[in-house]
Amino acid sequence: MKRILVPYDFSKVSEHALDFACQIADKADSDIMLLNVIEHPTADSFKTLGMQNIDPMEQLYIKKMYETVQAKLANVVSAAKYSDDRIKTKIQLGNPFNTIIDQITEEKVSLMVVGTEGAEGLSEFFAGSNAEKIVRKASCPVITIQDKCELEPIEKIVFASDFQHSDDHFVGQMLDLQRTFNAQLNIVKINTPASFTSTRHDTKQMEEFVKKHSIDNCTIEIYNYKNEEDGIILYAEDIKADMIALGTHQRKGVGHFLAGSIAEDVVNHAKIPVWTAHLNDD
Score class of each variant (00 low, 15 high):
40 H>F: 14
226 K>A: 11
241 A>C: 04
36 N>Y: 14
189 K>N: 09
47 K>W: 05
226 K>G: 05
130 N>M: 15
216 D>N: 09
102 D>N: 07
136 R>N: 11
53 N>P: 00
181 F>N: 03
117 E>I: 02
66 Y>T: 15
55 D>S: 09
127 A>L: 08
156 K>T: 03
183 A>K: 08
257 F>Y: 11
239 I>V: 10
58 E>R: 02
7 P>H: 14
177 L>V: 09
183 A>H: 07
29 D>L: 07
162 D>F: 08
233 I>V: 12
247 G>T: 06
121 G>Y: 00
5 L>Q: 03
153 P>Y: 06
171 V>K: 07
232 I>Y: 03
61 Y>L: 02
244 I>S: 05
101 I>E: 04
1 M>Q: 05
243 M>C: 11
60 L>Y: 06
133 K>E: 15
152 E>V: 05
280 N>Y: 12
196 F>T: 08
190 I>K: 13
44 D>Y: 05
268 N>V: 02
67 E>M: 10
21 A>V: 12
238 D>I: 00
34 L>K: 00
66 Y>F: 14
28 A>Y: 03
85 D>A: 14
264 E>A: 13
126 F>E: 03
152 E>R: 08
113 V>W: 08
54 I>Q: 00
192 T>I: 02
277 A>K: 09
207 E>N: 14
87 I>R: 01
271 K>S: 06
173 Q>D: 06
275 W>N: 06
270 A>R: 01
174 M>Y: 08
234 L>N: 15
110 S>K: 04
253 G>H: 10
79 A>M: 08
37 V>G: 05
220 I>R: 10
40 H>Y: 14
182 N>E: 02
63 K>C: 00
134 I>K: 03
187 I>T: 13
80 A>K: 13
148 K>L: 08
83 S>H: 15
112 M>E: 11
210 V>P: 01
139 S>K: 10
238 D>F: 06
89 T>N: 02
50 G>E: 07
54 I>E: 00
209 F>C: 01
22 C>D: 14
12 K>P: 01
135 V>Q: 01
270 A>Q: 01
133 K>F: 05
150 E>V: 06
72 K>L: 04
118 G>I: 09
61 Y>D: 14
38 I>S: 08
261 S>F: 04
122 L>N: 03
155 E>S: 12
131 A>P: 01
210 V>T: 08
186 N>D: 15
186 N>T: 07
161 S>G: 10
68 T>F: 10
237 E>N: 11
17 A>E: 09
271 K>M: 04
111 L>I: 10
168 D>C: 01
176 D>G: 00
